[in-house]
């Protein structure tokens, strides 16, 4: 299987570094980071400097982003006939039931509450990626 890069939409440098470190070399693909919601949409819709962007097999989307937040990004992706097929897993500090319900209703494929404990982050993220890349089959992407 060849995949485009895993897209992580995360504004916090510290959190992105922790996620990248937690995943280590367990992924079958590269990681691409976008720091804002609008950058993520540019990437996915191949706009601006991203006209050649490879379609990601999976998106990890932070909810709390500066400007356009993760909920709005999710809603736009799920309204696009092509992009709505990409699994999107929300990643958030908030375990607010209202946020969780909103995201699943809007079509997310999972909701990960960022654990405070780093070891738990490692377990959660590695299990999550194992599920998407090894257990279930997802559409092959690349361009």
């Amino acid at each position: 299987m060849s995949y485009g890069p895993l897209l992580i939409v995360e504004d916090s440098d510290a959190d992105f570094y922790a996620m990248k470190r937690a995943l280590g070399n367990t992924l079958p693909c590269e990681i691409k980071r976008c720091s804002t919601g609008s950058e993520a949409l540019d990437y996915l819709f191949r706009r601006g400097s991203y006209t050649e962007a490879a379609c990601p097999p999976l998106v990890l989307l932070d909810i709390n982003l500066p400007g356009m937040d993760g909920r709005a990004v999710l809603a736009q992706l799920k309204q696009d006939p092509t992009l709505k097929g990409i699994p999107v897993v929300m990643v958030s500090t908030s375990d607010n039931p209202a946020d969780i319900t909103y995201c699943y209703t809007a079509g997310c494929s999972g909701y990960l509450v960022k654990p405070l404990d780093y070891d738990r982050l490692v377990t959660s993220l590695q299990t999550l990626c194992k599920y998407w890349f090894k257990v279930v089959t997802i559409p092959q992407t690349g361009n």
Partner: peptide
């Protein structure tokens, strides 16, 4: 929301870097 999110986020960062 501030207590849950905005305060927890830097705390998580501090925790990660300590780790």
């Amino acid at each position: 929301y501030i207590a849950s999110h905005d305060l927890k986020e830097p705390l998580r960062g501090i925790n990660n870097y300590a780790q």
